[in-house]
Design a protein around this nucleic acid. Structure first.
Lengths: 183, 183
DNA sequence: CCCAGGTGAGACGCTAATGTCTCACAGCGG
DNA sequence: CCGCTGTGAGACATTAGCGTCTCACCTGGG
């Protein structure tokens, strides 16, 4: 059985998204390889987490690529983006909470790129008059992460249906809870 | 120096809200007591986390008590509630992510009470016509937790100002990002 | 002053998780 | 058939964190 790095990363992401404290032994078993092999390719748990970070960043950038958030209205861009990024909400939730631990170290530059792109989307919406300006673009970005993570966890706990996440997140983020008659 | 349970819990909450993986040694030092004493009163890290859970639940219930979410419009209730609960956003973020780990065990009954009360608030808003009904009350509750946690983390990372959290959370939750002319 | 209770400092052993190493074996190309 | 390469299984040492214990010390009440 030969080693498939991407398949291992996907299995690890699946497991760690559900149980962030899983041991490397469990990760290896979930990936169908031995602990020795896992350590050969990812020397240390940190290396695995870093690799997962790269994987998550790549997924996000693929989603950004597919969603083209700078085309059309900002609202349309955001809708496309959330729909594209929703499949990896669980992984994002894991990385989001994991990031809170890397206190001293500077975070991966990939996140900065993604942050900037998201913040840029919200800022564009503000400048075009679509989005309100009393909520900063930085906060809207942060809120998007938070809602995606909340959605991912709510799904794993069975509180909301997986298929609803995308709708729930984007509708709340855009429109809020208050009911309005006209669109 | 005599033992002050509440002061220890507050110090532990402060520290663990920032670094959820802090060792018991660090917690003891932050609380100004020795590891031995910490272990005398909280036998095991689990016991400490459980005590923090009780503490957080009590804080939430105090906030609920003070905010009286069932009085006035649902929107007013929510505004009062967020303002009252915001001071412990960091602790809530810690407990929120910690809860993801207690897979098998049933969660503390206190959370269920709080969940129900929050869900009840959102449901009341839906029934009175204030809140939209295409976002389930359960999801709105979950989103409130997620936004509070995101706000808490954003503050510890210096992305948004502490004083803005309450406004940011409640405005986004109620009104969303889309700009509207009339109130 | 003396005593009792509580606390801090530190040593000790235990456990889980990890990283490393060895060895056998299977697949594969010569 | 033979050697090479990569993998799995398991043993092993190491480490960090935890829980416990002992003992000295301090402090407050009698």
């Amino acid at each position: 059985m030969s080693f498939d790095r991407d398949q291992v990363l996907r299995a690890a992401a699946d497991l760690l998204a559900r149980r962030s404290t899983a041991t490397t032994e469990e990760v290896a078993r979930a990936a169908g390889i031995s602990r020795a092999t896992l350590n050969r390719y990812f020397p240390g748990r940190d290396a695995l987490v870093r690799a997962l970070e790269e994987y998550g960043i790549a997924e996000c950038e693929r989603a950004l690529e597919a969603a083209r958030p700078e085309e059309g209205t900002a609202e349309e861009g955001l809708r496309r983006l959330v729909r594209a990024v929703e499949p990896c909400a669980g992984l994002l939730a894991f990385l989001y909470s994991e990031n809170q631990l890397f206190e001293g170290e500077e975070q991966n530059a990939g996140w900065s790129r993604i942050d900037e792109r998201l913040t840029g989307l919200f800022r564009r919406g503000q400048e075009s008059g679509e989005f309100r300006i009393d909520l900063s673009a930085v906060w809207l970005t942060e809120a998007l992460y938070g809602l995606l993570a909340a959605g991912g966890w709510a799904v794993t706990e069975g509180r909301v249906a997986r298929n609803d996440i995308s709708h729930m997140v984007v509708e709340l983020l855009l429109g809020g809870a208050v009911r309005r008659d006209a669109s």
